[in-house]
C-alpha cells in the first residue's frame, strides 16, 4: 500500500517526462500476488531505472476499480503509458514476456 502512495506522488511529478505508468492489480496476500509484486519491482528497478510510477491496487480493498479497469485474471499489470496500453497477467515470472509487454523486448 505504501507503493501506491509513492506511485501516485511520482505520477503527479513526472508524467510529462515519458515515464512508465504502471498499475498492478493484486488480490491481497495470495502467493501469486506476492510474487507478482516482487517480480515487477525487480524488473522495474533493473530495466526502467526509476523512470516509472507503480501503483499497486488490492482489488479486495477496492473492488469498484476492478470493474473500471476490466480486471478478470489477477495479478494484472496495466501499462498506462507510454502508449500503447498493454496488459500483462500472471505473476510476472516470465521476464522476457514482461519486457515484451512493457515494450522493452528489443532492448534486452
Amino acid at each position: 500500500m505504501a507503493d501506491k502512495n509513492e506511485g501516485l506522488n511520482k505520477k503527479n511529478n513526472d508524467t510529462a517526462a515519458g515515464a512508465y505508468v504502471l498499475r498492478l492489480f493484486i488480490t491481497g496476500a495470495s502467493p501469486n500476488s506476492i510474487r507478482a509484486v516482487e517480480n515487477v519491482k525487480s524488473i522495474c528497478e533493473k530495466y526502467l531505472n526509476g523512470n516509472y510510477e507503480l501503483e499497486v491496487i488490492d482489488i479486495h480493498q477496492q473492488p469498484e476499480l476492478a470493474e473500471g479497469e476490466d480486471v478478470i485474471a489477477v495479478p494484472l499489470m496495466i501499462k498506462k503509458a507510454p502508449y500503447p496500453e498493454r496488459r500483462m497477467i500472471g505473476d510476472m515470472s516470465d521476464t522476457h514476456r514482461v519486457l515484451k509487454g512493457l515494450g522493452l523486448a528489443n532492448n534486452s
Partner: peptide
C-alpha cells in the same frame, strides 16, 4: 494481453461478488 506467469480469475470473482 501478455501472459507472464501463473494467474487466477480472482478478479472476476471479486467483480462479480462486488
Amino acid at each position: 494481453i501478455e501472459e507472464t506467469g501463473e494467474y487466477d480469475l480472482e478478479g472476476l470473482f471479486i467483480r462479480l461478488g462486488y
